[in-house]
Design a protein around this nucleic acid. Structure first.
Lengths: 102, 102
DNA sequence: CTTGTAAATAATTAAATGCTTATATATTGA
DNA sequence: TCAATATATAAGCATTTAATTATTTACAAG
């Protein structure tokens, strides 16, 4: 595996908020606006995190009217897949009572 | 797996020079001074990279006279182990002709 | 004890990162 | 067409990171 790509993916993974994003995505597609509530950061911040994940080939987007849904990409690399496997689904995504303890 | 530890390990992994270090360590123990040559950075910079890897539980050290040898830690987490498995041994460590193309 | 060598630590600096607010783009619906 | 909503982009700022040089610590040999 190319060391450059590896570094890029690892940098994309090495952030608590982005790990929470991936944790949410384990259960399926999630809308951008939902992440704003779960992570407790601004909408632009969420957007930037998602872009970083997208550029690393970890997530893909699907436009659905005004909304945009993100999901895990197909054919993830072993490294990314392992990280996702290790992530617990502790951060529930569609409610405000999520235990966001990062 | 704890998301905090996961983030810490991923941050430790998400650097090209540290990935090269791990690539070297695949073949066994390596002395600090060898890394200086391979990576082409200063000795203190190497020392700081190794400390970061050590604090993340990825490497251990062994004092051998004036020298210090580093090796991969025992019982690596699945994430770290996967990264190491994916690393090719392209960076040979004990010579100056290594293809360090990062 | 003194000298030389290996490694770690300290201090500094430049670049990268992650957040914010403000603005732009795009789509929906009256 | 116009207003409202969802998302992305731009600009600015504080923090973190990774490098450097200088210094300190630890050990080995004379």
């Amino acid at each position: 595996m190319d060391i450059q790509l590896m570094e890029k993916q690892l940098k994309a993974l090495a952030d608590c908020n982005r790990l929470k994003v991936l944790s949410c995505l384990k259960s399926g597609e999630v809308c951008v606006c939902d992440f704003v509530d779960v992570l407790g950061i601004s909408q632009p911040a969420v957007s930037q995190h998602l872009r970083k994940l997208k550029e690393a080939g970890i997530v893909t987007e699907r436009k659905r009217g005004t909304w945009k849904h993100y999901r895990l990409a197909e054919g993830l690399t072993p490294i990314v897949q392992t990280v996702i496997d290790e992530l617990e689904a502790t951060v529930t995504c569609e409610c405000g009572s999520a235990e966001v303890s990062c």
